[in-house]
Simulated scan of single mutants.
Amino acid sequence: MIEARDITIDELEATAAELGISLPIEQTSAWSRYQATIDGRTPWGCVALEEHDADGAAHTVALASLFDYETHGYHYLRTNHAPVWVETPTPEQEAVGIEALAAHVHKRDHKQVFIRLSVLADLPACEPTLSGIPYDHTVIIDVTGGDEAILSRMKPRGRRDVRKSLRESPATCADETELAAKSFEEYYDVMRETGERDGFHPAPCSDYEDMIRILGPKHCRVYAGRIDGRVVTWSIVTISGTRGVRYYGASRNDTMRQHVTDKLVYFECCNLGANKGCLDYDMMAIGSDFSPKLMGLNEFKTKFTKEVAEVAPDRDLPLRHTFYKALVTAKKIRDR
């Protein structure tokens, strides 16, 4: 049997440390402080999923920090890259765990329509997400062993493109965290151009500025490539434990063929491994049969490593089933 129990964010982090769990940045107190600054989002609380043995003793099997999202007049909960399981769960254990979480949330907070959470197995209780593009595979680069070791583990195409960028790209790469913390406008202009090219609307500039400021330099770095003093490519990288994550990235149209982002990604790998205590670097999200809309990311990202990693994708867990079905119907009408 698994039961959910309310805990504080401090207890969540302490329990994770005791159990040797490396928390995603989204499950930390630093992230909770950042999310609290975004309109429509409120930290809801944290839970421990506990399994009881035959003697009645409780053992923590998973942890999650949840946020209340208010949108279009209703509320739902979201927990990013969680529940974080102590050990990879079986589908049966995962089903029991999310059922316990659903019962706990519904008892405590009747207004929540559903929970958006990361679930590895394709369980009957879950539905495809109403919004966003979830993914079930990512690229994780080993950044240990120094510059040449990082290069040696890439696919031949990745090594070729990085070496070409080192020889020919006029971009100068650097950690510009301090500069970006003072003003993000120069970088945001590149994001606007990227959004127009790729068909998305970036968040307000203040969101990126808040992220950099609130997470702080220990958990958030900004890397950039410049040509003649002009920012042409950049990345916002989060750091939690020994993992870096390329959370956001942008590049200018007129320099894309100059391999500036190849050069920057390699610089980030080397810097994170040598100077920031990271063992690996998650490029976040590639396409698959589960998420075909993301296939366009694969050519660039997969060249930096010979293997891809499976992750638990976001799924919706309905709590108020009639209301949720109405939202699904409304979405279908809107899409048509």
Rank of each mutant, 00 (worst) to 15 (best):
D136F: 06
L319R: 08
I98G: 00
V84W: 02
A36H: 14
F304P: 00
L130D: 01
T79R: 13
D189S: 12
T8F: 02
F290W: 09
V232W: 02
G56Q: 14
Q258T: 10
W85M: 03
H81D: 09
R5M: 07
H137P: 00
E268N: 07
Y188C: 02
G287M: 09
R252K: 15
C220I: 07
A274Q: 13
V265L: 14
A58Y: 04
T255Y: 08
A14N: 09
V143E: 02
R163M: 05
E99D: 13
E70K: 12
A30G: 13
V231K: 08
H59Y: 08
P292Q: 10
R197P: 00
R153M: 07
V245I: 10
A100Q: 04
L63C: 01
H219P: 01
L12T: 01
T8M: 06
M154N: 02
D147S: 15
E3T: 15
C278S: 05
Y69R: 13
S165C: 06
D314T: 13
W44A: 04
I212A: 04
H137T: 10
T71C: 05
G56H: 10
D335M: 13
A274W: 07
V84F: 00
I133F: 11
I21F: 00
H52K: 13
E13T: 08
P318L: 09
R221M: 01
E268I: 15
A16C: 05
P313E: 08
K263R: 15
T138E: 02
L279Y: 10
D109L: 09
A125T: 04
D53V: 11
F304G: 00
G287D: 03
I7W: 04
Y74A: 07
K164N: 09
E299F: 13
Y324V: 08
I140E: 02
V222Q: 04
L294T: 03
R243M: 06
R257I: 06
E310C: 10
T90N: 09
Y223T: 02
D282F: 07
A180K: 14
H110V: 14
P313F: 11
A181M: 10
L77D: 00
T302Y: 03
T138Y: 04
S131N: 10
V119I: 15
V86D: 04
S240T: 11
K164A: 11
S169R: 14
G97F: 09
C269D: 03
G244N: 02
D122V: 11
V245G: 01
A14W: 06
L130F: 03
K164T: 11
F114R: 07
D335H: 12
V47F: 02
M284G: 05
D254Q: 14
M295K: 13
S65Q: 14
C278W: 03
L264R: 06
D228I: 11
K306E: 10
P204A: 07
H81R: 15
T71M: 12
G287C: 07
G244W: 03
K111G: 01
